[in-house]
């Protein structure tokens, strides 16, 4: 389990998830169960198939290059946990 714990901790790191010790253990156990389920896919003989990335995409979709400004920008700014003047605020990158 120690190795699995390390591996899932690395995933937590990549995903910017802080996990406490209990959480880390609980999630690693559950994740291992799912990983084993995922591994059953190795039995499928699908090498010759193309992957499906878009279920039913049929046509090009684009929009014209025109400006259409959002009206309620104040609502967006005021949703911020920390705002200074018109800026979103975070602690400095050290």
């Amino acid at each position: 389990m120690a190795r699995a714990l390390d591996e899932w901790s690395l995933m937590a790191e990549l995903a910017r998830l802080e996990l406490d010790d209990n959480e880390a253990l609980r999630l690693a156990q559950e994740a291992e169960r799912m990983r084993e389920l995922f591994l059953t896919m190795s039995r499928a003989d699908v090498d010759s198939l193309e992957p499906t990335t878009h279920a039913l995409a049929r046509e090009n979709r684009v929009r014209k290059d025109v400006v259409d400004s959002f009206e309620n920008i104040d609502v967006l700014l005021n949703a911020s946990p920390e705002l200074e003047d018109e800026f979103f605020l975070i602690p400095n990158v050290l």
Binding site: M41, S42, V46, D47, L49, E50, P51, T52, T53
Partner: peptide, 8 residues
């Protein structure tokens, strides 16, 4: 692999 299974 999963995306290919999706095709299958």
């Amino acid at each position: 692999k999963a995306q290919k299974i999706r095709t299958l």
